[in-house]
Amino acid sequence: MLPYLGCIILFLIGIYAILTKRNLIKIAIGFCLLEYSVNLFFAFIGYKKDALAPIYANLSQARNFVDPIPQALVLTAIVIGLGTTALLLSVALRIYEKYKTFDIKEIKRLKE
């Protein structure tokens, strides 16, 4: 149960960062934390106690494998996360270039 609790704590920290921080980069970091917590959670799902790595060596051991699918999925999710984070950061940097600030409350030309 403990790892799941860790996930939830990480998740809450991420939400806290997104909701309260004013710096764009910090918001991005909070967003990364959220993503990690979800990925971690996904990875934990496949875990089984005392199980082997899912490599198809010989059939006699085939009974007690760790579920390999979540790992593959998490890898994909990480790639996607990489893409989003990169885009988020580069947009944040461009915003800094134009607005000369990282403060999210200053960046409000689009409203109403």
């Binding site: 915003i95 960046i107 689009l110």
Partner: peptide
């Protein structure tokens, strides 16, 4: 300016 701002908010 506005494009980047919109994109950032949209992304988050």
């Amino acid at each position: 300016k506005e494009d980047l701002e919109a994109s950032f908010k949209y992304q988050i």
